Amino acid sequence: MRALLIVNPNATSTTPAARDLLAHALSSQVQVRVVQTTHRGHAAELARRAHLDGTGLIIVHGGDGTVNEVVNGLLGAPEPAAMSDLTIGPIPLLAVVPGGSANVFARSLGIDPDPVVATNQLIELLELRERRKIGLAHCDGRWFTFNAGLGLDAQVCEAIDVARAKGHAATPTRYVRTAVRAFFRASGHEPTLTVEVPGHDPVDGVHYAFVSNSSPWTYLNRRPVAVNPDTGFDTGLGVFAMRSMSVAASLPVVRQLLTPGSNPKSRNLFRIDDTPRVRITSSAPIGLQMDGDYIGKRTEVEFVSVRDALTVIAPSRG
């Protein structure tokens, strides 16, 4: 099988040594070509070309942003009414060796966050021919793999992007500090969001909303943070929408999110774990993020779940 290894050399935990180890290990299983990304959007371009030239496997060594680019390069613009028209020929298999800071997508699939361990894991999975189909989601004309959101998390992603541009690493500590600052800046603002899901009355007065395609929503180092624990790659979307920004209402919810095995509940929280779509509108432009990348401000977004959209090299149960 011909394979393309896409490496983002600027990702948090990618190194030339890890790249070379991965390429050497893969050569025992597949005919591998290695390409490093050089600019934003390059991973999508490489994935699109590899798909068109019949490459059977794409391995991503980078963070969640690089994975997102590759997925969008493979599948093209989402057109749910005509999925058969999205691509030309069979879609290559996808594998990920983590190289970013959070690596939410790979870890949600059961891939070890350590690149060396993940490399050995990938070789074993290739030997066993182990793979699984997963669902994806889309909104605003592009795909996302694990989560998207309007409001608070988008503000955090925007601030982290600015910090990265200034040379600051996207560490868990920086994410927490940024999230706390964003929360208190937004706490005095009026809610602008209305959430609509099939089978439920519209929920208004929402300050921020997370939409998940998998669980956990993110990781703090090795600790999973699960906003919709019953959402997964084999279900519809999870929705987590808060109707309060008060400290008294928020702290119990945060405590639940950080407690393993908890099922977040609050009278100020609207949460559903399996819906095919969700429409969120805002009375004023509000930030949107997908897979940790800040997209921009929107007033209306529809999120759609697509089952069995992609086949990945991963343990049968992530």
Rank of each mutant, 00 (worst) to 15 (best):
S13G: 07
D308Q: 07
R317N: 00
A226D: 09
T299I: 07
Q121H: 13
L288N: 08
V253W: 06
L75C: 15
A18L: 05
L21H: 12
L152K: 06
Q256L: 07
R40Y: 15
W217A: 05
G63K: 02
T145P: 03
H189Y: 00
Q31H: 09
R48P: 10
K166W: 04
L237H: 03
L52Q: 12
V180S: 03
A81M: 04
P9Y: 14
T145A: 14
S214H: 05
Y175P: 01
I286H: 08
G54P: 14
D112Y: 03
N103Q: 09
D230V: 03
P172Y: 09
P260Q: 15
D308G: 06
R185K: 13
V301P: 03
D201S: 07
A44C: 07
K297Q: 12
S101Q: 06
G318K: 00
G63L: 12
F233M: 07
D204R: 07
D64G: 05
L4C: 04
M245C: 01
R33F: 02
A137Y: 09
S316F: 02
A165M: 12
R107S: 05
S101F: 10
G205E: 00
G62F: 05
G287P: 01
D308I: 01
L126R: 01
V254C: 04
D114Y: 11
I134P: 11
N10R: 15
N263I: 10
P9C: 12
L74T: 11
A314Y: 06
S28N: 04
G318C: 00
Y175V: 12
N72P: 07
G63I: 08
T145R: 04
Q121N: 13
L57M: 12
T15G: 11
Y294C: 15
A309F: 01
H51A: 14
F183G: 08
S108Y: 08
T38G: 11
I111E: 00
V225I: 13
A106Q: 10
A102D: 08
V301K: 03
S13W: 06
G296Q: 12
S262V: 12
L5D: 05
R298V: 10
P115K: 05
P198T: 09
H61N: 14
L109S: 10
V60F: 09
G56H: 13
L269P: 00
K265P: 03
A17I: 07
L52W: 11
V180N: 01
G205F: 00
L251M: 14
P80L: 13
V225H: 01
T311F: 05
Q256A: 08
P98L: 08
A284F: 02
C157G: 04
V32A: 14
V312I: 06
S101R: 04
L22R: 02
F146V: 14
D64R: 03
E127L: 13
D85C: 14
E300P: 13
G261H: 03
R277S: 15
D20I: 07
S214V: 06
V70D: 07
E127T: 14
L52P: 11
I6Q: 08
V71E: 14
H39C: 15
R177V: 11
V7Y: 04
I272R: 01
Y208R: 01
S244W: 00
A163Y: 14
G261E: 06
V254I: 12
Q36W: 15
A182K: 02
G287I: 02
L152C: 02
